[in-house]
């Protein structure tokens, strides 16, 4: 089962894992006010602790540009079966990464890092280590991926602070090692000149 949204947010903030500005609406009426507070463009996503792949349920909308659009989209999201609320999040741009973790029945907590986005499974540019890891391990993980060139400012793309990616990996590995979680899925994690942000998070318990 997926961890409830509130509990998930608490857990992430306890490990100081950074998110883009995010609100959670359990009622339709709350959406407009929250959206205005964040500002546009923004992302609206359905939340349910029974839905793992939001995209497959048509539960993710990007580039919401106005209050009107936000209201209309929220109506659709609340109608998705098993919907428990709507995530309203500031839309940010940058390099898409994936960070994950898993409790392996034999080796215990393991952490994953790689090139993110909806096609992670196709690209499969991911590496693993046994948790917990230190900064040196995290740096090694980054260097083992093909996607590392994107972090270094590939063809005019904005350069990312590598130490912030390292920091996220170390924190996630600690979370996976210490907490009673089965799987962690941060995809995408977006890295840009302002920082490294976990945009979409799912924690399986």
């Amino acid at each position: 089962m997926i961890l409830d949204f509130k509990k998930q947010e608490n857990l992430l903030s306890r490990y100081k894992i950074k998110r883009p500005l995010t609100f959670f609406a359990t009622k339709k009426e709350e959406v407009a006010c929250m959206a205005n507070k964040i500002g546009y463009p923004l992302v609206l996503k359905v939340f349910s602790n029974e839905i793992f792949h939001r995209t497959e349920k048509k539960g993710v909308y990007l580039n919401i540009g106005s209050e009107k659009e936000a209201r209309e989209t929220a109506n659709k999201l609340f109608k998705i079966p098993k919907s428990q609320g709507v995530i309203i999040q500031k839309q940010i741009e940058g390099i898409e990464l994936v960070v994950g973790a898993k409790k392996d029945p034999s080796f215990g907590a393991a952490i994953m890092f790689g090139t993110g986005g909806v096609m992670v499974e196709v690209i499969s540019d991911v590496v693993f280590k046994i948790a917990p890891i230190g900064k040196k391990d995290a740096k090694e993980m980054i260097n083992e991926t093909k996607g590392k060139i994107f972090l270094k400012g590939f063809r005019g793309m904005q350069k990312v602070k590598e130490e912030l990616v390292i920091d996220l990996l170390v924190k996630t590995s600690n979370l996976a090692y210490k907490e009673k979680v089965q799987e962690i899925d941060f995809n995408p994690v977006i890295a840009n000149k302002d920082g490294v942000f976990v945009c979409d998070a799912k924690i399986k318990i």
């Binding site: 994950g100 973790a101 393991a110 995809n187 399986k204």
Partner: peptide, 12 residues
């Protein structure tokens, strides 16, 4: 999950 599908027994 993505992690679940990418992290096979042998990968770990």
């Amino acid at each position: 999950s993505h992690t679940g599908s990418l992290a096979g027994e042998y990968d770990i």
